[in-house]
Simulated scan of single mutants.
Amino acid sequence: MSILLQVVDTTMHTAQTAQQTVAKISLWGLLGKGGVLMYPLYFLLILAIFMFFERFIAIRKASRIDANFMHMIRDNILSNNISSAKSLARNTDSPVARIIEKGLRRVGKPIDVIEKSMESVGRLELYKMEKNLNILSLIAGIAPMFGFLGTIVGMIELFFEITSTHTFELDTIAGGIYVKMITSGTGLIIGLIAYIMHNYLTTQVDKTANEMEVASTEFIDILQEPTK
């Protein structure tokens, strides 16, 4: 009976030791085994996060505008108080206000001239909001490629080592393969994160562009209303 208890204790101790060993294989530990090409991937991840928050803050700032802005512009125009409308638009920091200000400067000229001048400002404001979004798109494309490159380089090194040492142990081969595939997994994850960030920001830009278009159309309609 005592021998049986000793066997059970030994088995439980071995299982606990193995469990502790498995628990020590953390995510950071795995990432640290990825090799030299993990550093470019880390850089791409940091760059993607930085660009996302920089563009997010800029786009969010651009999309903010007082809900009564166009109402005040309309009241000033219909009251033939163009100078007050210009002052209001000039002191409001938003793409919509800059587009309206450009239109106010062209008041008195044909409608098509006013529309074209406002469209040119709108394109410029849209370009400002989309600035550096292509970097996120680039990261989404090249991060998986860096990951695959790291895996290929690692596999070449592994097979070269096997050829040189003539070692065909399964543990060595399997361990080498899973380590080399870390870069592929990391690259795919970073690429996916950058892709989601890019799509989200593009959606926010589209919403702001739609607000600009609506405000421009409303402004043209106001100009065609009879003044008081």
Rank of each mutant, 00 (worst) to 15 (best):
T11G: 09
T14M: 15
T14E: 15
Q20S: 14
Q20C: 09
A23Y: 12
K24G: 11
I25E: 08
L27V: 11
L31N: 03
G32Y: 08
K33A: 04
K33M: 10
Y39V: 11
L44N: 06
L44I: 09
A48P: 10
F50A: 12
F53E: 02
R55L: 06
A58Q: 03
R60W: 00
A62K: 00
A62R: 00
S63A: 13
M70K: 10
N80H: 11
N81S: 13
N81R: 15
S83D: 13
S84W: 08
S84A: 14
A85F: 01
S87N: 14
R90Q: 15
T92W: 03
D93K: 07
S94Q: 07
S94P: 13
P95N: 08
V96L: 04
E101M: 05
K102I: 00
G103Q: 02
L104Q: 01
V107Y: 00
G108N: 02
G108T: 00
K109S: 08
K109N: 10
K116L: 00
M118C: 08
E119L: 09
G122C: 05
G122H: 02
E130Y: 05
L133E: 02
I135R: 03
I135P: 04
L136D: 07
L138A: 12
G141D: 09
P144Y: 03
G147R: 00
F148R: 09
T151A: 08
F160L: 11
T163V: 07
S164P: 06
H166M: 13
T167Y: 12
E169D: 15
Y178I: 11
Y178H: 09
V179C: 04
K180Y: 06
K180V: 05
I182K: 01
I182R: 01
I182G: 02
G191P: 08
L192T: 12
A194W: 02
M197T: 01
Y200W: 08
Y200T: 05
Q204Y: 01
K207D: 14
N210D: 10
V214C: 06
T217P: 06
E218Q: 14
E218G: 03
I222C: 10
P226R: 14
K228N: 15
K228F: 14
K228Y: 12
